[in-house]
Design a protein around this nucleic acid. Sequence first.
RNA 1: GGGUCGGUAGCUCAGUCGGUAGAGCAGCGGACUUUUAAUCCGUUGGUCCCGAGUUCGAAUCUCGGCCGACCCA
Length: 504
Amino acid sequence: MTNTTTPPTPAPAPIDENRLIAERREKLAAWRATGKAFPNDFSRENYAARLDELYASKTREELEALQIEVKVAGRIMLKRVMGKAAFATIQDMSGRIQVFVSIDATGEDALKAFKGWDLGDIVGVVGVLFKTKTDELTVQSREIRLLTKSLRPLPEKFHGLSDVEQTYRQRYLDLMTNEGSRFTFVARSRIVQSIRNFMTNHGFLEVETPMMHPIPGGAAAKPFKTHHNALDMELFLRIAPELYLKRLVVGGFEKVFEINRNFRNEGLSPRHNPEFTMMEFYEAYTEYRKLMDFTEGLIRHSAREALGMEVFEYQGRVLDLSKPFHRLTIVECIRKYHPGFTLQELADAEWLKAKIMAFGEKVKPGGLGSLQLQLFEACAEAELWEPTFIIDYPVEVSPLARASDTNPEITERFELFIVGREIANGFSELNDAEDQAARFLDQAKAKEAGDEEAMYYDADFIRALEYGLPPTGGCGIGIDRLVMLLTDSPAIRDVILFPQMRRE
RNA sequence: GGGUCGGUAGCUCAGUCGGUAGAGCAGCGGACUUUUAAUCCGUUGGUCCCGAGUUCGAAUCUCGGCCGACCCA
């Protein structure tokens, strides 16, 4: 709410004030003195891009005959002033359109006022569509009003904002000036919408489970801690919704999904932000192989819906989502990229440790399966450009997954890799309460032994399983990473509107 | 946490061997009724990220710090 008659004095001292801002403040003061500053009675009726769609194909003569009156509003992005007339390019949510202001059609006072307005100011325009000499669709303004005074100068009009730090810290500036950035976040919205539609069309119920957990669970990760005063209780921002979603399946919601934030107290990188978005879904009476088919369909669907295609380029290299995704076990995948490694060697713990170190990685303690997984991460994971499901993860690193019926050392679990990055993780759920309790105990031991990412024993989750979880499959999909793929973004920060930054 | 690179006008960027701080855009003044990164003439604007050191003299060299990007852990 702004009182247009009384200036809000004294103005608080803003940060990084400069001469350009001071000049704009003077213009604002003059505007305020008219008693008509910051009006909110302008009714925008047309969007720039829509007008272009509807009328760009009309000829000058056709438009002249039609006399289409429009009301557009937006930010002045470009301004070209001549003696007795002027052009401006204004931008709204849909795009840009040119506006013509002249003594003849708009009036001398309006033109004079317009000349004093700045790039970044927000205006409302009433006028008639016409085409210029160069056939650009333009609004011949009959009326043009200043709606909002912008006090800060825009980034350079041609290069836009290129300081990467500023694009993240002041995303509004990035969105104002960078078309590519706007496209990315519109695409993100469409991708999320397409996933939501896909899930609900397949009979899944969208739910919201707690973001604050008394016991952090569902993943191996360090949590953020917080405190609830009234309950005098330590709480953790969730690292995953998994255990709550499975409680819902116990409750009879047999097909559920949640699209929401997870929080992990880890470093920042081009692929990691402390808060990130996951879609997790659970379906009763299915298992991991069917889950892979479903996940494959979901990803293909979101590419089609959001991009309109299944074959596109990521960072200059073709990515084809239309072909069936590969499926390989961890050992098969290692041998695909290193055919010289024999099955005997890959079953030899000492050989595996030596190889992991030879690839420049530290060896983490673990059994054969864990060592094979570490070698896979060291020598094969980054090669998986084409969509590939890696299957048969070892039990010891999969404390929530159902063990294989044929080999108790491995689980019915997969991870999906695309362009060398993990995109999804899913498995047949462990629904044997006693087995789950034993696995939690193993995790608790590992935690005591110093593994900070090991899981806690969650007694209520065990209690829920003891009531009976039907055979169920579940999968999590990293939405940020999927959006990176589909928008050709190299860093997770490019697909998160306000990525985490150090304090300014 | 370690390594590499970077931080100069509101924005985009130059700045040689250590010798008075530069351009374009934006702004301000002027000309111009179909421009479109409008054009033309004139002009204002600097904590060279911060601090210390070396030096007659530091945006420039050295050290420390802050912030960012990338790579590694």
